[in-house]
Design a binder for these strands. Structure first.
Lengths: 233, 233
DNA sequence: CTGCCGAATGGAACGCCGTTCCAGTCTAAG
DNA sequence: CTTAGACTGGAACGGCGTTCCATTCGGCAG
């Protein structure tokens, strides 16, 4: 009695597996979307381009994905999940926070569109993942419970702020432009600001070439961690 | 010899002033754009809607404004300028930083679209203004010069991160929705997360109703300021 | 084996967008 | 008066997200 059934199942599975290679699925759609976003940038991701690459019609995609926001949120969550989960436990909490933050930073440097997406929807899954990872380390650090929410919020919002900023910069910078040249140009523009109105920017301008974004990012994290440390006394 | 010239200028000015009442100008366009953004939200600002309200064609607007990005940047810069400049000098630097930050926060609460805009373009004028205002206070606080850039960056990026977040939340929240109801709903969603994977979010969920965003924002500023204080020892 | 039903597909069509184009108007200067 | 050039406004273009719908196809009831 079960033989045909099992056979049927096997055949089904085989056929599905066979079909899978070119069948649509949410995963395959997201995967392809990430490919397009990484290779050609945010503006290149359209349902038409996606459909073309998947050799289907734009309408078919809507069977698996609610809309473009849904697609982008899922893609971002995918990328962030890879980064946040592989924080090795057992490391000292402050160091773990640094690793989480740097993981997110590097992910955005590699996929700038993620930075845009993270500050697009307020409590999307990708942000929740980061919040959870950071919060858990704060618990391990011994931050009193009422302050944990505030501290996690400070860290996460700082990360998201820089994320958006880096993403915007990447959008602006043509992929072949020289970074140093760009910084020098920005510095030159700042140096021309009205000295009376913008003394600070003019002073910063001279530091701008030879400036390392990643180091500054980490310096910010350490600054906040140091502020959190004050709460522990 | 100068009389006619002056006369000419006067006549011109008078005529211009006369025409101004219904003539197009960059200022009037920006002003109207802000009205639309505030009243109907980011998605309502289109060149057609703007042209209709100005009783002109969309093409005419492009004579005064390069494109939509230019328009949005100018509008945001307008709003931020009002906030950042009226920080009364003479106040203690930390308090001044708090006031600047709260000014930006309140501006975004009142005009959520500004939050979106601030994290859209990397070194736009509005951000420069904030950076300058914050940086100057850090100088007054006695932060050593090499650290000033990092400290200002930390503060500004935190503000921008929260700005984007609040803007996204405002976009999501229908203008008539109850805030408490929304928070309760979010808390309920978080409480349903997998306890093994999201212990921190579930713990935070119970604190979520009765949570004050503005207070949390200020707590984050104080956290960073406290971290900066460490540098002064 | 056959007929059927619902999941899945893909391409056409809709309405709206930012932007461009251009024929026209009005005005200050020669 | 003529004319150049600042300025206007509406039509048109190409592309977008999304919807609609005729069609296909695999698994199951009879």
């Amino acid at each position: 009695m079960f033989q045909p059934c099992q056979n049927g199942l096997v055949v089904t599975k085989a056929k599905r597996a066979q079909r899978r290679t070119d069948a649509l699925s949410k995963e395959r759609i997201i995967e392809t979307a990430i490919e397009i976003l990484d290779a050609e940038g945010e503006s290149a991701l359209t349902f038409r381009a996606l459909a073309a690459r998947l050799t289907t019609g734009s309408g078919a995609i809507y069977w698996h994905v609610a809309n473009k926001d849904d697609l982008l949120a899922a893609a971002a969550s995918d990328v962030i999940a890879r980064v946040v989960t592989d924080v090795s436990d057992g490391t000292e909490p402050r160091e773990a926070v640094r690793r989480i933050a740097l993981g997110v930073y590097d992910a955005i440097e590699a996929h700038p569109w993620v930075g845009t997406q993270l500050s697009r929807e307020p409590w999307q899954f990708a942000v929740l993942r980061i919040f959870e990872a950071v919060g858990r380390q704060l618990q391990a650090l011994g931050v009193p419970e009422p302050a944990q929410f505030d501290c996690a919020s400070a860290l996460v919002n700082y990360v998201l702020g820089l994320a958006g900023h880096r993403a915007a910069a990447a959008r602006l910078l043509a992929p072949d432009t020289d970074r140093t040249a760009f910084l020098t140009a920005a510095a030159a523009r700042w140096a021309q600001l009205d000295p009376g109105q913008y003394p600070f920017m003019r002073q910063v301008a001279v530091q701008l070439p030879g400036h390392d974004d990643r180091e500054q990012f980490l310096a910010g994290i350490d600054l906040i961690l140091s502020g959190i440390g004050e709460k522990l006394r």
